[in-house]
Every structure is written in C-alpha cells, then in structure tokens.
Design a protein around this nucleic acid. Structure first.
Lengths: 194, 194, 194, 194
DNA sequence: CATGAATGAGGATTCATTCAT
DNA sequence: AATGAATGAATCCTCATTCAT
C-alpha cells in the first residue's frame, strides 16, 4: 500500500531494472546484492524473484534491446560489400548505439571478467568479434588491420572514457567518431585496402 | 614435501603470485577464490596467509612494479614542458609499459568494477587520470581534446584487444603506437595546439 | 478461460486433488510445490488457496475417505471376539482397502518421515497401530506375535512392491492375501493362539 | 576451545554423522536442516561444510558401508545356482544386514520419496531390485513369485515395524526370518519351483 | 613453513501464504 | 472463481579469514 502510494502500480518490473542498472554501474554486477536492490526499492528480495527468475535474469533483461540492435547492424553489415564506405557507415551506427546505451556498455566493460561466463557476457563478446570481423581484412598488412580495429575500439571505450571531459555529449560523440573515421580512412588510403 | 621436491623452497611466494595472476586473468578477481589458488598450487589456503596478509594483498603485490613505473613516467611528464614532442614520448613510453605488463592491465581492465573500491583499482584510476591530464589542454577545442584522449585510450585497450590479430607482437605494438601517434599529431596540427 | 473450455466449471477442486496426488506420488509431498501443481493445472497458486486452506489441507482431503473406511474396519474388529476367524476377515478387508487405494498408501508410505508431524501421518500411524493391536496377543510367544504382524505388514507393503511383477492385479492381490493368511494361520496353529 | 574440552579433537566428522543420522531418523531427511545439526553439535554450519561437501554428502557417507555389504551379497548371490538353498541363505544374510543397520534402513524407507532422486535412494532401490531378482523365477506361477517377494519384503520392513513389539531383538529377528523362510519354502514346495 | 579445523557474515534462491482486486 | 503482486522466513551453500599446533 505504501509503495502503491509512491508509485504507479504496474511499474515495479521496470523500477527493478532501473535500480539494478544503477547498482551495477556503481558497485559492479557481482558486488551488487539482491538485498541491496530490494532495499533501495523498498520491496522484499522475494519481490524481485516474482518479476525475474534470477539475478542474471535481471541483467539479461537490461541488454535485450541493445543486443537486438547490434545484431541487426551486424546482419546488415554482412550483407553489404566490404569496403571503406560500408565501414564508415558501420562506425557511424556503432557510435549511435554505443552512446545511446552508454550505461549498459559501461556495465559490460567494467564487469568483463564477472560477466565472461554469463550469457550476456558471451553474447556481447561474440557481437564485438563479429563487428571486428567486418573491419578486418585478414590478408592486409598488420598495420592496416590494427588501425581498423583501433578505430572500432576507440569508439567502444571512448564513449565512457570521455564522460569526464567537459562539453556537449553530442559534440563529443561526433569528435570521437571523427577520430575513429580518420584512423579507418588512413588505414585504407595508405595501404590500398579493398 | 611433494611441492618441496618439485620446486625450490623459497619460491612459494612467487608461485602464489603467478598462480593468482593466472586465475585473475581466467576467472576474474572476485570469482577467484583462495581455495582455487591453493589447490592449483598444491598447498593449503592457510599457506597463502603465511605469505600474504589478505587476498587483496596478493593483488597489490602483483601491481607494485608497474605502478612504480607509471608513477615515474607521470613524474617525468609533469616536469617537462607541455607540447607535441613530450606527448609523443609519453605515448611511446606508455606503449612499452602497457605491452610489457599486458596481463596485469588486462586484469585491471576486465575487473574494473570489482577493483574500483580497492586500493589497486583506485591507484590505477588515478594514474590514468594523471596521464590523461598530461594530454589534455582544458581550453583546446573539444575535438582536439577528444583526439588526444583517444590516442591514449587506443593504446591502453588496444594492447589486449589485438591479441586475436595474428602477427609479431612487437610489430603490432608499433602499429598501435603509430595509429595513436597519428591521432595525437592530427589533434595538434589541425587546431594549433601548443 | 482456456481451462474453462476444457473442463466443466465446478470440477476444479477435484482436479486439484488429482494433480496433487500425481505430484505427491512422483515427487513426494515435501518436494511438490504449490506452484508445480498450479502450473500443471493451468491456474494460479492463489487459485489453490481458493479451494484449500493450506497445502496440508489438500493432502488431508485426499485421505478423508480411506481414513473413514479404515476406522470402520477397526471399529468392527474391536467389537468382534479375538480369534483366527476374525483376523482372517480383517486381513481380507485390509487387502481390499489397501489395493483399492493403493496410490494413497504409496504416498503415505513413501513420505512417512515427511508426514510424521502432520495430522494425516499421525492418524494413519495410529490406525496401523490399532490394526496391529487386533492381531497381537501380548502374552503369546514372540514368534507368534511376529508372524501375525508380518502377515499384516506384507499386505501393506506388498501392495505396491508388487507393481513390478507382471500379472493380473486381482490375481496378485489374492496371492498376497494368501501368503499373509498362511503366516497368520501358522502362527495360530503351531502355538495354540486363541 | 570449548568443543575441544567437551570432545576429543578428531572426532568431529564422526559426530556429525551420528547427529545427522539421529536427525534424519526423527525429523526426516528433508526437514532436517544443517543448522539443526550444527546447533545440536555446538558448531557452526560452516564447520559441517568443512567436513562434508553437501548435505547429501553426509547422507551418502552414512550409507557407504551398508551399501558395500549389500553389493557383496548380491554379487555372491549372482554367482550361485538358483534354488531354494541359496535363497534361504540370502534371506538369512539379508536379515543380518537389515537388522545390523536398522536405523539406516529406517531412514531409507521413511524418506523414500525424498531420497528417490538422490544417489543414495537410487542406489538402494537398485539393490533391492537386484535382490528381488534373485528371488524371482519369471516363469513361475504368480502366486509363487508373490510369496518369494513377500518373504524378502517382510524381512525388509519387519525389521523396524517390530521395534514396538517387546522381546529380545535377536529373538525377534530370528522369528521374522523364520516367517520369511516359511513363505519362501511354501512357494517352492507347493509349486515345484526350481 | 605450513596445516587442519573452524567461524561469521553474507549470498542467491525457494516456498507457503496473504490480500486487494 | 480466480489472479497478480508481494512477503517473511527459511534453506543450502561459499568465502575470506583466523589460530593453535
């Protein structure tokens, strides 16, 4: 009754997700306990289990949407011809995805070890691999390959590393994308990649 | 007695460190239990406590040396005048440090959340900040700042992200450094950084 | 709505009983959860509470009828003179009851420990004691007493132990009763029981 | 230190087993909690886990010895020719085993459902089946088969069902064995079993 | 130098049960 | 007649840590 006063009725599931994400960000996945989430929410641990089957399930639910978006992008990339134009577009799309779901990627990255044996961790590792694959030309000179991967990486990690730099988020995003595109382009120009 | 046969007597401390590092790499810091390390080593948990005061202590001991090297580099950087030349040198030195202690940085990065409230985690976070500071010109255009930071980042994360790319490690390191230097240079050239 | 299509409306109570019995048989009383029963039935846990006050209540309801029949038999037995003839008749009646409610006795027996502090468990323990009492002659030689009890026991446990032996159920029942009667008779003949 | 005063030092493991058996007898396996055992013993729950890997492990440890003895008997039985003489001997040996480990068989039997999905439960179910097999002549008349099985059963269950009958345990055991042997013999005589 | 035994705190999970709707 | 949401209490189990020997 108290919680009904404070919140709408059917929003508990979502509130759990929000609180969980917050905790995962601040304390990490492993160190976040269900008690913590429950207390912060003013419900019982058991209530969490009414809405989610396990702790991991809460995590999974958070990543459903981003996962789908990445899968679509990868699918799209695979159907395109390989080449600079497509890679530029991939980079641009990645930039959008990464920055629109920045907190999620932060969790992913800051808990890499913890999540490495969980479905979410594995799935995203695979997605990043797949994405890398689209940027790689196995027979190109090492220097070019490294630059391509670096371009992708700088986007991936830059997104949250830059949170401490002042400035308009969108401006920062574009600057980051700019640097990445530059790396990518230089890889193609200098060494005649396909 | 069996372990005494297989190894010299005084090397236990070091063997603990090696095993621990291995475990931290494979399973992450939190999920690595002292029992695990002990079993792998053929000793008792209690034995670990003879050599190290706590689990965290093992971790700390692993990072003593790299920490020192980074501190020296930062110290050196602070005494130099700001400018492209110095930054290039910093980048080069970082590249050496990062790749010579790659496993340690992998642990650091893959367990960011887990270590964030431990001395080691905090210390390295500070070191990275300090390093970033040497690359930043607070009044420069955002685009330039972002590029500088990206240069550093790509080194930091590239080191282990490239482990899947085939090629001579040293060649990959130089290629990575090359890309980073390129980003750094373009930041300075295009926008007239000091 | 779906379950209303498949079944008449008022039979839910009975369907709960059937499903519960099935679960109790397969998984045991303790390990059968109300969720399990509910899911199997396509209703909510709360629905079970509409029809039964507690989990134990479902159990109790299952045993009401057999309990009554045993009580009547005991009552009858108590009013008869002690002697071989009466005991033979008791054995025969038991055989009928046991085999007509075999699943219930299986639950009872396979969950003895679990039910030992529940009303149902206690009640049946008492009934079996009472029945035993009708077969016992406290002053008779131990050997005779043991045989009498054994006769009863073999009926009780044989009923479900024989489910793996091929053959017509009624034939098996009679064979079992035959063996039991033989034991009973030999107890009386050999040692001159009343 | 307190527990060292009260007891010898190395006996904890055994005391856990004793206490556990007691609890399993009184309260049943499922309802016996590790807390219960620990408290009764004056140690921590964690102490139990030092000596046994799981709750089930405690149970398993209790049955190691009886299991072995039954296996040996079965092995022996299989190597003998089928026939009345051998079956009589099997019955006699079973009688010894059952009554020497009566509490264990009580636990087994009173927790049948609870143990049915545990290794111990399964193993003993198999042993009883194997034993039954030695008493069965698949082509014999149903009546004979039933009598043979009943003979075995009455031993199995009689052992603890008779705990309420007064008298010398050994005398009761022999009386029980007597009744069982009688059933067995009558099965062979009357219907010309091998 | 190392072990065996034990602890205390805490973690995820499950369950029967309740109640407003 | 039945549901959705939630609870409280308990359970098994794990871990870092300690200490007498």
């Amino acid at each position: 009754m108290r919680s009904a006063e404070r919140h709408g009725r059917g929003d508990t599931r979502q509130r759990i997700q929000e609180t969980a994400l917050e905790c995962f960000l601040v304390r990490g996945y492993e160190r976040t306990t269900l008690r913590e989430i429950a207390v912060r929410l003013g419900v019982t641990k058991a209530a969490l289990y009414y809405h989610f089957k396990t702790k991991e399930d809460i995590l999974v639910s958070l990543f459903l949407d981003v996962g789908r978006r990445m899968d679509e992008l990868i699918e799209w990339g695979r159907r395109q011809p390989r080449g600079l134009e497509v890679r530029r577009e991939l980079l641009a799309q990645c930039s959008v995805i990464f920055s629109s779901a920045a907190p999620l990627f932060t969790v992913l990255h800051a808990n890499e070890a913890a999540l490495s044996e969980l479905s979410v961790g594995r799935a995203f590792k695979n997605r990043v691999s797949a994405l890398s694959g689209l940027f790689r030309e196995p027979d190109a000179p090492v220097a070019a390959q490294v630059r391509c991967i670096t371009a992708l990486l700088s986007l991936h990690f830059g997104t949250f590393a830059l949170s401490h730099v002042e400035g308009d988020p969108e401006e920062k995003r574009l600057a980051l994308l700019d640097g990445a595109t530059e790396l990518l382009t230089s890889a193609h120009e200098a060494r005649g990649l396909a």
